[in-house]
Amino acid sequence: MTEMTSVTNGTMGRVAYARIAPNEDLVIGVEKLCLAHGFRNAFVRGALGSLVDACLGANDDKFIEVKGPAVEIVSLAGEVRSDEDGAIKAALSGVVADPQGEIYGGLFVAGSNAICMTLEVTLEEWLPAGD
């Protein structure tokens, strides 16, 4: 049975900045950035860039598809966590603007958000106490 806790103590570690190239996936790209630097857990400290199109999860098990290019990322928040089996998984949500400046928000669907020109992202490593 998995132990549920509402508070995890820890400290911040290294800080990585990346420019991720076009046609890479936003969510998986952030996971690969963690692999590149050996981060097991991390928080997004800032990000901006553009997507070809955006695919966001909606509340009702549906998907919101925002047509580009380019769909600008105007807000991105999220974390990368290690699973019990050691695999890492990014969960990123945010707000995007379409080519008319209209905005939409939600959870970015992994594998379905190709970067258009660039993604600038800063991750701060999270070191949970006891790890």
Binding site: C55, A58, D61, K62, F63, I64, E65, V66, K67, D98, P99, Q100, E102, Y104, V109, S112
Partner: peptide
């Protein structure tokens, strides 16, 4: 610009 459906 936007579509909403159960698949993507």
């Amino acid at each position: 610009t936007i579509t909403r459906s159960t698949s993507h």
